[in-house]
Nucleic acid binder design. Structure first.
Length: 799
RNA sequence: GCGGAAGUGGCGGAAUGGCAUACGCGCUAGUCUCAGAAGCUAGUGGGGAAACCCUUGAGGGUUCAACUCCCUCCUUCCGCACCA
């Protein structure tokens, strides 16, 4: 007999919707649990990555419901972004219409999976009821000096006359017209996330339940480093070039310095020199080079000599000043001291351009080694050589002593540097939140008054992907009266990066219809922080960092009383097919909808959890899906053969299973939880189950296969949803076994096994072991050197 | 280059110092059937007739005992803003 998954799944989905089973309401007496999965971009179709992410979340949510928590489990759409613009151009429609159509389709697909969402809380970031609060937040930041304007480089396509995202630059060319991409300076809006860097780093320590790798990625991204700023005087001028280094111990080996081509001193340095023309050409070339090309590691490091010399302040040695593309203006001081012997990049550059080098750190065993002997830079620890009064010190000590010495001599300054830069949020795009700023010829930059929000995104902007910002072409939008002096003014036409939208949506879900602010303080106080957040590892840095930044900002505004938005984080692995990520270009996509039609959502949910642990990659396998389906049919058939009373042996297995599944669910080990449910099912086939054992099996399965379990639960005569059944508890008395199998090893190799009473005395056991027949060939005539006993498990005899 | 993760049967995976390969897929045989499908039962790491021996990317170490801990190396995957 087969179960009719199609009928069953439709029936229960309708019932859940009608009964509002998953509606979440504040209940102060009850323990709350906020479970959130990263909301999707509405592309129209869900893919296996979504199925995996949301199934993991759904099982956790339903498990918590069974455990008696008041669960908030919302869903929404991250609906602004470029794909809508591209799709609209391609399909001759509008981003608005296209996005809303996609949202409807995706809602349908998500509902077909049976996910336990409170759909009444759904939000879409492209609705003005949502993005008006983006604008509100922006204005609050602007008031506090956290949003500011600054000139910055963008990728510019001269063919399309538009800016390009990094991912739209393919091998230095525009993805649409292949024209060579240039760099252009534009005034852009930034958020001062760097003001929060200390807290963003510090508070990582509170996140005990985050994966170690995400924490270290965030810490590295923020990149706090202690180092020294060293002042190199320019020869024949009274100008000074500061360079930053974390390796003050190598200063005596600095044989040249390198400036970024954009460095403000460069033009002056090359003026009138023989190298001037060559240098100007190089600067021009680098300036046009897209950041993507410049940043790719396989490109050869290029550079030119400026013709100027500088003085190494520790030994007054004259060193050449170069410019090179691998030094970036954005980091540190935009200038570095080069130590070819102890930095591999400097080493390669020095070899290429025949620059001098000097060893200053050496391991004792390498004493006497010459620079000519080096085939690569030595970046490890050692003893100082060629370093004046610091010779013979270990470099770790010298690093500190040299830094302090330079500070007292006034040739350097100990400094903390950060890797984190401010966040550029301006986009010259249409489908995003308009930045609520007005430019008045008299008053300058004027924020839109709060009562005038939202600044609505015009529905009818013409855009073709060419010719600059689409909003700039909508006169009705651009032309505006200055809120201060009523003179004719101009609106900002940039929109916000979509990461802005997703940096606070978890707060909106607490009170999605709130009208007096981005979220209700009372609701946020009850539901937040998110107890469990689930999403892809690709968001390990940016999204999570921005969400943490916004949370701290809200705390500073006094709207919330906590520092971190996400208590626990799970990053799920990708879904692969034939060892590769599923993608359209590879043509290896497996469509969830097809699988639902063929086997049902419950089977799909079961398989995707069973095939691999949540955090590792998952290899898709059609046959595995069939196996999962087979298992459900096997459980379904149990109902026909229920006994009046279960075997005591089965009861023991049942309680063992309850213990194991409870532990595994708490730790998100769904694959092994399912394995033990399968073992229980196998035992039922051997020993026969009664109604009680079967009921508990169904309850334990219900978070994974909700429709299937609800149906069986009803067939067993229950009136309420299986969600009301309560999570089963195990009886530790039943778990105690009378007899235990002890493994007998000789010299670490298994030679025999014996069955003994659980509470056997050690001396008695030893006697039995030494008398074991299978063991005798191995121990006979040999003195027992050691007798190791692991209680209830194993004995190892060393002879 | 920087940072992170992982390597176990034919395949997905289990075991975090104590019986390597749980559970599932696949495969083999049996049973049921006119036949097939489904189901059920049994078997299934490699070598060997057997006793036994070998086996967790490679090599070394610690330990009574290592997939698990330490060292060296190899391979694969992921993220990134060449971060000095």
């Amino acid at each position: 007999m087969f179960y009719d998954f199609k009928k069953i799944e439709e029936k229960w989905q309708k019932k859940w919707q009608k009964d509002k089973t998953f509606r979440a309401q504040i209940a102060p007496a009850q323990k709350k649990y906020y479970l959130l999965e990263m909301f999707p971009y509405p592309s129209g179709k869900i893919h296996m990555g979504h199925v995996r992410n949301y199934t993991i979340g759904d099982v956790a949510a339903r498990f918590k419901m069974l455990e008696g928590y008041n669960v908030l489990h919302p869903m929404g759409f991250d609906a602004f972004g470029q794909p809508a613009e591209n799709a609209a151009i391609k399909n001759k429609t509008k981003p608005d219409a296209w996005t809303h159509k996609c949202i409807r389709e995706m809602e349908d697909e998500l509902k077909k999976m049976g996910f336990a969402y409170d759909w009444e809380r759904e939000v879409s970031t492209c609705d003005n009821s949502y993005y008006r609060w983006n604008q509100w937040i922006f204005l609050k930041m602007f008031e506090r000096g956290l949003a500011y304007k600054k000139a910055s480089n963008v990728n510019w396509c001269p063919g399309c006359q538009t800016t390009l995202a990094n991912e739209e630059v393919i091998e230095g060319g525009c993805w649409r017209c292949s024209a060579k991409v240039e760099q252009k300076d534009l005034e852009q809006w930034y958020l001062k996330i760097t003001e929060y860097r200390e807290r963003l780093l510090e508070d990582l320590q509170q996140l005990e339940d985050w994966p170690e790798r995400v924490l270290s990625m965030q810490a590295n991204w923020i990149g706090k480093s202690q180092g020294v700023e060293i002042y190199f005087k320019l020869k024949g001028q009274d100008k000074v070039v500061p360079v930053f280094t974390t390796r003050a111990d190598t200063i005596f080996g600095a044989t040249y310095i390198v400036l970024a081509p954009e460095h403000p001193l460069v033009k002056e340095l090359i003026k009138g020199k023989a190298q001037e023309n060559e240098a100007l050409k190089f600067i021009d070339k680098v300036a046009k080079e897209s950041k993507v090309v410049r940043a790719s590691s396989d490109v050869k490091k290029e550079g030119v000599f400026t013709g100027s010399l500088a003085v190494n302040p520790v030994n007054n040695e004259e060193v050449p000043v170069w410019i090179a593309d691998y030094v970036l203006m954005e980091y540190g001081t935009g200038a570095i001291m080069a130590v070819p012997t102890h930095d591999q990049r400097d080493f390669l550059f020095a070899k290429e351009h025949k620059l001098p080098m000097r060893i200053v750190i050496q391991r004792t065993e390498d004493r006497g080694q010459k620079t000519e002997d080096l085939t690569e830079a030595y970046e490890g620890d050692g003893i100082q050589v060629n370093s004046g009064e610091f010779n013979d010190l270990p470099n770790s000590e010298a690093k500190i002593r040299i830094a302090e010495w330079m500070e007292t001599k006034g040739i350097g300054k100990i400094q903390t540097h950060w890797r984190l830069r401010d966040w550029l949020i301006s986009r010259q795009r249409y489908w995003g939140t308009p930045i609520p700023i007005i430019y008045c010829p008299k008053c300058g930059v004027v924020p839109v008054p709060y009562q005038n929000l939202p600044v609505e995104l015009p529905k009818d902007a013409p855009f073709t992907g060419e010719g600059g910002s689409p909003l700039g072409k909508v006169k009705k939008f651009v032309q505006v009266k200055c809120p201060k002096c009523k003179a004719l003014a101009r609106r900002e036409t940039d929109t916000m990066a979509t990461f802005f939208d997703s940096s606070w949506y978890f707060l909106r879900f607490c009170s999605p219809k709130f009208k007096d602010g981005p979220f209700g303080e009372k609701e946020a106080a009850y539901w937040m922080p998110v107890d469990q957040y689930i999403g892809g590892i690709e968001h390990a840095i940016l999204h999570l960092l921005y969400a943490r930044f916004f949370t701290k900002f809200f705390k500073d505004l006094g709207l919330i009383d906590f520092n971190e938005p996400f208590k626990r984080l799970l990053t799920q692995g990708m879904v692969l097919k034939d060892g590769e990520v599923m993608s359209k270009s590879k043509g290896n996509i497996v469509d969830p909808d097809t699988m639902i039609k063929k086997y049902g959502a419950d089977t799909l949910r079961l398989f995707i959890l069973f095939a691999a642990p949540p955090e590792t990659e998952l290899e898709w396998d059609d046959r595995g899906l069939e196996g999962a389906h087979k298992f459900l049919n096997r459980v379904w058939r149990i109902q026909d053969n229920l006994k009046d009373k279960a075997d005591p042996a089965l009861l023991r297995i049942l309680h063992k299973t309850i213990k194991k599944v409870s532990e595994d669910f708490r730790e998100f080990k769904f694959n092994t939880a399912i394995a033990s449910l399968m073992e229980l099912t196998n035992a039922v086939y051997q020993l026969g189950a009664d109604k009680e054992v079967f009921s508990k099996l169904i309850i334990m399965l219900s978070p994974i296969t909700p429709h299937f379990s609800e149906e069986l639960w009803k067939i067993l005569g229950n009136k309420d949803s299986v969600l009301k059944a309560g999570w089963p508890e195990y009886d530790s008395k039943i778990l105690i076994e009378e007899n235990i199998t002890i493994v007998l090893q000789v010299n670490g190799k298994v030679r025999s096994k014996i069955e003994v009473a659980a509470n056997i005395a050690e001396s008695k056991l030893k006697e039995m072991v030494l008398a074991d027949k299978k063991l005798s060939p191995w121990i006979q005539g040999k003195p027992v050197k050691n007798f190791i006993l692991v209680p209830n498990k194993l004995v190892n005899i060393v002879v």
